[in-house]
Amino acid sequence: MPAASSIKVMVADDQLTIRALVRGGLQQLGFKDIDEAPDGEEALRQLIVKPVQLIISDYNMPKLDGLNLLRAVRSHEPIKKTAFIMLTGRADKELVQKAVQYGVNNYLVKPFTITTLKEKIEAVFGPLT
């Protein structure tokens, strides 16, 4: 049972409002160490320098989308075991199947509530204390 405050998080989304919503939800759940990136390319650069335990990434982003960010994370040894939650406005089967094939831990459909965010994170880490 990890404490939310001990889990480092990267939020990657090209929409500032979504990043702010995710950050706000995470802070309400007790997360303190939260980094942000406006696209998958920037997220990957930051992750290589400062690894985290959880990545929450939008699917649809410029430069490097969420699926390719997931593939890059899974192929980079130091961060390949990082928990990855895909954030998407589309819950289509094909996307979910591809994400599962590439090793996603969970996915979160927009719009989401703090309760849903917590459930998705706890499904990966177990109950947050």
Rank of each mutant, 00 (worst) to 15 (best):
M1C: 03
P2K: 09
A3E: 13
A4L: 05
A4H: 06
S5M: 08
M10S: 04
M10C: 02
V11C: 04
V11W: 04
A12M: 08
D14Y: 09
T17P: 12
T17N: 13
V22T: 09
V22N: 02
G24T: 14
L26Y: 07
Q27V: 15
P38H: 00
D39G: 04
A43D: 03
A43K: 06
L44Q: 01
L44D: 03
L47A: 00
I48T: 11
I48K: 15
V49W: 03
V52E: 03
L54T: 01
I56A: 02
I56G: 00
S57H: 10
M61T: 09
P62I: 11
P62L: 07
L64Y: 10
L67K: 03
A72T: 10
A72K: 14
R74N: 05
R74H: 02
S75A: 14
S75R: 15
K81M: 13
K81Y: 12
A83K: 15
F84N: 03
I85F: 11
M86Y: 10
M86H: 08
L87Y: 05
R90W: 14
A91W: 08
K93F: 13
V96K: 06
V96T: 08
Q97A: 14
Q97Y: 13
K98N: 12
A99M: 08
V100W: 15
Y107A: 03
Y107I: 06
L108F: 05
V109L: 10
P111I: 05
F112T: 01
L117V: 07
L117H: 07
I121V: 12
I121L: 03
E122W: 10
F125G: 01
P127Q: 11
P127W: 06
L128Y: 01
T129G: 11
